[in-house]
Design a binder for these strands. Structure first.
Lengths: 178, 178
DNA sequence: TCGTTCTTTCTGTCATAACAGAACATTGCC
DNA sequence: GGCAATGTTCTGTTATGACAGAAAGAACGA
């Protein structure tokens, strides 16, 4: 890794590790980290050089990041090459990641849980316990999903304010839950 | 996979896939799914037979699940063998999983972000932009972490009620955020 | 249109982690 | 203590996905 301050390098390495623990390719996460920290858009070659990975690896990883919607191509006048930059707003970025993971993983899970719960119900006594368990699981996912849809619709400022309210959240909920 | 209804088998397979997407070993997730659905505690051999995996694989996976705190050993009278059962309360289960992932992954990230943010600040102008970005990221993680600590302290019933409030959440927040 | 630059896709290699089977260790009974 | 049953650890194999490098494909300028 050439040309990086210790802070930059440290973040890129840790972000890469974090990625692997959450099912995201290390290089993908590292590129994202690099672009997030970079004050200006970078081209693929710069990325490959900085992280010491193959050009092809960068190409595929960038496609992945674009698929997530957190990195986009920009153009620099007088330069044919594609340049890439990451979204900088952290709150928006994580909202997008959550949206995407919900769409890719939670929604299909919901669909399958509905299907299997119905199936277990139909098959009667021998699946009675299974049905019960699946129903609980389905109920959980549906509740969480609906809740997320609610807070997701809040304007970002309101959401941030809500998160940052701190202790008042509990009082509020103590009141509202009654 | 012997001796399973389609609903059971479907859930186990899907849960295994879900696991891999979230950085959890497929077999570990499958065993968890099996135990979650099972009306009674199972011994290691039953698990190995049902899922067609090696006994050693089951042993290691069970250790992992016990490490997460969502599976525990129980004993059946007149039977020397260890039997295993999963926690059945879905809400509690996910709370535990979130706690654990926070402890293992988010807290270390926070520590590193603090360290790197400080380092970037000290190194002055050449890291000014990096410092800015790291500070944003740190701020996000700290806010989320504090928020989680708040809702985490709620009694479970209140939490569930809150999640299930549905549309009222937004009105509440509209009011509270002002 | 040809050559240059840049990007993507394809193919084979490599690293990692999952896994099976065997060896080993422990437990409890006779 | 010895033996059967159970559980864990170790070792080598296998499967998977990450990756490099080469080849192919576009885009563009001359």
């Amino acid at each position: 890794m050439a040309d990086m301050t210790p802070a930059t390098e440290g973040f890129i390495l840790h972000w890469g590790e974090m990625g692997t623990k959450w099912g995201i390719n290390r290089t993908v996460a590292q590129i994202h980290a690099l672009l997030y920290l970079s004050p200006k858009a970078l081209n693929a070659e710069q990325i490959a050089d900085t992280l010491s990975v193959a050009r092809s690896n960068v190409s595929n990883s960038l496609r992945e990041l674009q698929g997530w919607g957190i990195v986009k191509v920009v153009h620099v006048i007088g330069d044919r090459r594609d340049h890439y930059e990451s979204m900088k707003d952290v709150w928006e970025m994580f909202q997008i990641i959550l949206d995407e993971r919900k769409k890719r993983e939670i929604d299909p899970t919901l669909a399958i849980l509905r299907e299997l719960t119905a199936k277990a119900k139909k098959s009667g006594a021998k699946d009675a316990h299974t049905h019960e368990r699946l129903k609980d699981m389905l109920n959980f996912f549906e509740s969480m999903s609906a809740w997320y849809a609610q807070i997701r619709r809040l304007p970002q400022a309101a959401f941030i304010k809500f998160i940052k309210m701190g202790d008042r959240v509990r009082k509020l909920l103590g009141f509202a839950g009654r």
